[in-house]
């Protein structure tokens, strides 16, 4: 566990995650106060990554729940193993020939899903629980989550109450395709992850793609920082920066040229309309602006 905001920044940076003070403060408080960390931001700015980094840092298990529409307790929490139950009942009936009911609603027949895993009382240490892209789930799931996150216990009608011995560290991410309810957000430490500053992004590229020359890294970042000032449907995130840097590395590029950019445009922009807009003239305009 961290003892100060500065330590948080340093420890994360040891794991190759470059965090600014805002994110570090939010994370530090989230861990200290035992509240979920709610991260919002454009796609590809490292929201999911932070959970992976924390799991490595604390040498603990990362439990990930990917949200989607219609996600319900059967897939998020637990489900009974129906075929096993059925077979057991039939077998019990044949072996002792009685109609006596057999208790099939016990732990042996329980299929644990991510949320139940996360609050398993048998754990020796707090896991990291990543609830990814919560905006994709529906309101019903949100209210269920609200309940779980308030005391980290759930009641299975057939079994009783299960309560976490070591509360999981919870990280919730959202791409903001819809507004998450205030009641849930208020229970969390909220942080909006913005696109990184130029210097921070260069640091990220250097750390994650050490094979790239410093000059190329700076050029890649300068170009994309300019692209983000333009109006596109989907702006390139840090993920795109890293992918692009890697791609340029594979192509043995030493610097970016309009021709090279043209060939690799599909890595930066993901909509045909956006590609059309930047391609040709657009690239040259931006190259001029960054003095390339």
């Amino acid at each position: 566990m961290f003892n100060s905001v500065e330590e948080t920044v340093n420890k994360l940076s040891d794991q190759d995650y470059i965090a600014d003070e805002g994110l570090a403060t939010a994370l530090f408080l989230s861990l200290k106060m035992g509240k979920p960390l709610f991260l919002e931001g454009e796609p590809g700015v490292g929201k999911t990554e932070i959970a992976k980094v924390l799991a490595q840092l604390f040498e603990t298990e990362l439990i990930r729940l990917q949200c989607y529409e219609g996600l319900d307790t059967n897939q998020a929490l637990y489900e009974w193993n129906y075929p096993k139950q059925l077979l057991k009942m039939q077998a019990a009936k044949q072996s002792n020939g009685s109609e006596e009911t057999f208790d099939v609603f016990s732990e042996a027949f329980l299929l644990k899903r991510p949320l139940l895993h996360a609050i398993d009382p048998n754990r020796s240490k707090s896991p990291i629980l990543l609830i990814d892209e919560l905006d994709r789930s529906d309101e019903e799931f949100e209210s269920f989550l609200l309940e779980l996150l308030s005391d980290f216990q759930i009641t299975i009608p057939e079994l009783g109450t299960i309560k976490a011995e070591h509360r999981p560290m919870v990280i919730i991410t959202s791409n903001r395709t819809r507004e998450i309810h205030d009641a849930l957000k208020r229970r969390c430490i909220y942080h909006w992850i913005d696109y990184p500053s130029r210097q921070k992004e260069i640091d990220i590229v250097k750390t994650k793609r050490p094979e790239i020359s410093d000059q190329l890294a700076a050029q890649v970042v300068d170009f994309l920082q300019e692209v983000r000032k333009e109006e596109f449907y989907k702006l390139p995130g840090v993920a795109e920066t890293l992918d692009w840097a890697e791609a340029l590395g594979h192509l043995n590029a030493t610097e970016i040229t309009p021709k090279m950019i043209e060939k690799t445009l599909g890595i930066i922009l993901k909509y045909q309309d956006d590609v059309d807009k930047l391609s040709g003239q657009g690239i040259e305009v931006i190259m001029e602006r960054i003095g390339g």
Binding site: G22, T25, A26, L29, Y190
Partner: peptide
């Protein structure tokens, strides 16, 4: 000051 700012922001604000 920065830490106070970020602490306040992460706890009191939940919309961009």
């Amino acid at each position: 000051r920065n830490q106070v700012y970020h602490a306040a922001r992460s706890l009191l604000v939940n919309r961009r």
